[in-house]
Write a protein that binds this DNA or RNA. Structure first.
Length: 100
DNA sequence: ATGATGACCGCGG
DNA sequence: TCCGCGGCCATCA
């Protein structure tokens, strides 16, 4: 479990500027498939001033996993747009940027 | 031990 | 696109 945490942080930190990865991808790359929820839990515990690019992590539908009206949603979207990530008309789907 | 709760995932309808 | 459902799994009451 401790392993998962370390790897997850490393992987997230390695996501290129302007690109995004999904919770599931991070978990799988860390060697723990089916642990997407755990990744979310780890990010949720992150301190506010964290330098980790948590905003580059979205769900498998390429959508921000926060309710649209929430402050966190706005924050994540803003950070992504600042990196040049574009969203669809409904502001939910980062169009072309997805990690492989 | 049991049930509820997530920054999740995929498949249907 | 928008739900609902089952699957998944650690955490906590």
């Amino acid at each position: 479990m401790q392993q998962l945490a370390e790897r997850v942080y490393t992987l997230i930190g390695s996501i290129p500027h302007g690109k995004v990865a999904s919770y599931g991808q991070i978990a799988a790359l860390a060697g723990y498939p089916n642990h997407a929820r755990k990744v979310g839990q780890l990010l949720r515990q992150l301190p506010d001033g964290s330098t980790l690019p948590w905003h580059r992590v979205v769900n498998s539908q390429r959508r921000i996993s926060f309710p649209e009206e929430s402050q966190k949603f706005a924050e994540q979207k803003q950070k992504l747009e600042a990196e040049g990530v574009t969203f669809s008309a409904r502001n939910l789907i980062p169009s072309q940027y997805l990690w492989n």
